[in-house]
Design a binder for these strands. Structure first.
Lengths: 197, 197
DNA sequence: TCCTTAATGCTAATTAATTTGCATTAGAGC
DNA sequence: GCTCTAATGCAAATTAATTAGCATTAAGGA
């Protein structure tokens, strides 16, 4: 006998609620969004939200994680440099709209409340890390430079996202410059992906 | 005739409130800290807090900005490489305690509500940027490598802080590795500090 | 020292958030 | 279909957050 009923109504409610939260994030501060407000926009009873998510903060982070992990697949142009350049340009363009970095803000703004929660947050990003790994593996197979995913996150993603958080400009040229910078660095010290998973 | 009275009681109240907020941040989630709670711990009337800061979120960010801008002065060892290494090690050690990254989380988690607020946030960090500039200027004067502050923030600070936000480990070796990486990069494209101020 | 009033304190009123208890609806297995 | 019950809805009760109004305190200039 099943313990939960994830299909049908449950899924529909979840979709309605998530859409409502994303809509509300367009128009106001995450901290100013209440359960009652979400319930109203979603056409759902507020008590349902309290039962399923406990509080607004949990719901908000779940929505943020969802948004961050349903990003487009990584480029596959046949050249690592071009893959990275295309991806970096996309990120820079996306983050240039302050509204788009809101999910990221919500994610990092929420302090992990427990080890269990911290693990869940990390797992949410592991998929993306694996996609990066696949892209790098393709490059290795082609005999191109041997990079590891953490080098990409440290030297390509970190500067882009950090600039977004601080409101510093990051245009396409800057994004491509990071790629060039990354591809000429010393890649001696290999750090295992397991460290971050 | 004066319009405000910043001295005496006002300053004392402010100090009490800030201390209370910092103490509360030690023990619980930023989003779970209420004005009444802060008032209680500070021994101040809640109405005073509402009057001076409007809401908890504004107060919290003001405290976070304060904490982030009263960091220790940068190293001055006579060698840029050693300056950067020492600083990077300090940051890595500091951020290894999740509690220490809480101010950073509060800062980035708060979405700037207006252009005016965004300017205020940027100004808060400008002092630090100027300190970095001074450190790099000393290196230039000694005939060492010519770096600009944004290269330091992009390639040294960004990876360290980003790892802290995502809970990825960042030890002293990693921190020093970033410095080596930074000092062997191509520093052709100079980006003016004004871009980020 | 005395005056003016900014800043704070205190209490009550108001408003919003959250919980509780029970009724209703609709997945999912048979 | 039929049954069981997870998931939801609804309304009342409770609790917490916020505002309003007035009294009190103390900075800071004269």
């Amino acid at each position: 006998m099943r313990k939960t009923r994830p299909g049908g109504r449950t899924a529909r409610t979840r979709a309605l609620v998530f859409a409502a939260v994303e809509a509300l994030l367009e128009e106001k501060d995450p901290g100013a969004i209440s359960m009652v407000e979400i319930a109203g926009k979603a056409g759902v009873a507020a008590t349902s939200l309290y039962r399923r998510w406990g509080d607004a903060r949990s719901l908000l982070t779940e929505v943020a994680v969802g948004a961050l992990t349903r990003e487009a697949p990584l480029p596959d142009t046949g050249s690592l440099r071009e893959d990275l350049r295309a991806w970096a340009r996309t990120i820079a363009a996306t983050l240039s709209d302050p509204q788009k970095s809101i999910f990221f803000r919500v994610y990092v703004g929420a302090v992990p409340r427990s080890d269990k929660e911290a693990v869940g947050r990390a797992r949410a990003l592991r998929t993306r890390l694996q996609q990066i790994d696949a892209m790098l593996e393709r490059a290795r197979m082609r005999g191109e430079v041997n990079l590891n995913p953490l080098e990409v996150t440290d030297h390509l993603l970190a500067p882009l996202y950090m600039r977004a958080l601080f409101g510093a400009p990051a245009d396409a040229d800057f994004a491509e410059g990071l790629v060039d910078y990354l591809l000429q660095g010393d890649h001696g010290a290999y750090v295992n992906v397991a460290d971050v998973s």
